[in-house]
């Protein structure tokens, strides 16, 4: 009895996670439209907030020698450049432009590449990075020690990156807990709706999702 409860619970959690991941990935699709200055300010605020919530990790990042890590979720249009050391900073940039070696005038010492969902899980310590790497779902280029130091430091935190990120995003802050509670039924309804749709519409829905998450080019406005 207890076991099956636990299973049902886990499944609801997993579903909530899937929605969160999809939504946040879609949100990232909006970042390029914000303009550089708005986006930079947004990530400055996020970094500031993370520093307050996770002083151990972010103090450690500041204590590291100056270095840049490029984080590339391969299924989003965006990449992130994390600079550690005394000038700690976090920036979003268009992924295509981000070749290792030279990123917006900054040299990336290391690059981690992988699917967005896995990278997010990794940042929050939900999955084991080594296992992902063994399965070749993650690619690592450059300074392996830098990547390991970041991974180990982040893994030492209990981090809920999405909750942290959304907590300064006004109304969205209230949306997340509601979403997490109701994820199971929302997904059920979505799935049911999808099954009922005629196939041309289903394909249309897929296109909308793709556009939302930034995988397909947005129609010219």
């Amino acid at each position: 009895m207890r076991d099956s409860d636990a299973t049902a619970h886990a499944t609801a959690d997993e579903r909530a996670r899937r929605i969160e991941t999809q939504l946040s990935r879609a949100g990232l699709g909006l970042v390029p439209r914000m303009g550089r200055r708005v986006s930079d300010r947004l990530f400055d605020r996020l970094l500031h907030l993370l520093t307050i919530r996770h002083p151990r990790a972010f103090t450690a990042f500041r204590a590291m020698p100056d270095a840049c890590l490029l984080i590339e979720p391969v299924d989003t249009p965006m990449a992130f450049l994390l600079r550690v050391g005394p000038n700690l900073s976090l920036r979003a940039l268009r992924r295509g432009a981000a070749a290792p070696g030279d990123v917006g005038g900054v040299t990336a010492d290391a690059v981690v590449r992988g699917p967005y969902a896995q990278l997010l899980d990794l940042l929050e310590g939900r999955i084991d990075g080594d296992a992902l790497f063994f399965r070749r779902e993650l690619t690592i280029v450059g300074d392996t020690a830098l990547i390991l130091a970041l991974r180990n430091t982040l893994d030492g935190e209990e981090m809920d990156l999405l909750a942290d990120a959304m907590s300064f995003a006004g109304p969205l802050a209230h949306a997340l807990p509601v979403l997490r509670r109701n994820a199971g039924s929302i997904l059920d309804r979505l799935d049911a709706a999808r099954r009922l749709l005629p196939s041309p519409l289903r394909r249309g829905l897929a296109r909308v999702e793709a556009r939302l998450s930034g995988l397909a080019p947005a129609p010219e406005a």
């Binding site: 310590g125 084991d128 080594d130 893994d155």
Partner: peptide, 9 residues
Amino acid sequence: QRGKAYIGA
């Protein structure tokens, strides 16, 4: 050297 997810499991 492994992550907390691994250790927990």
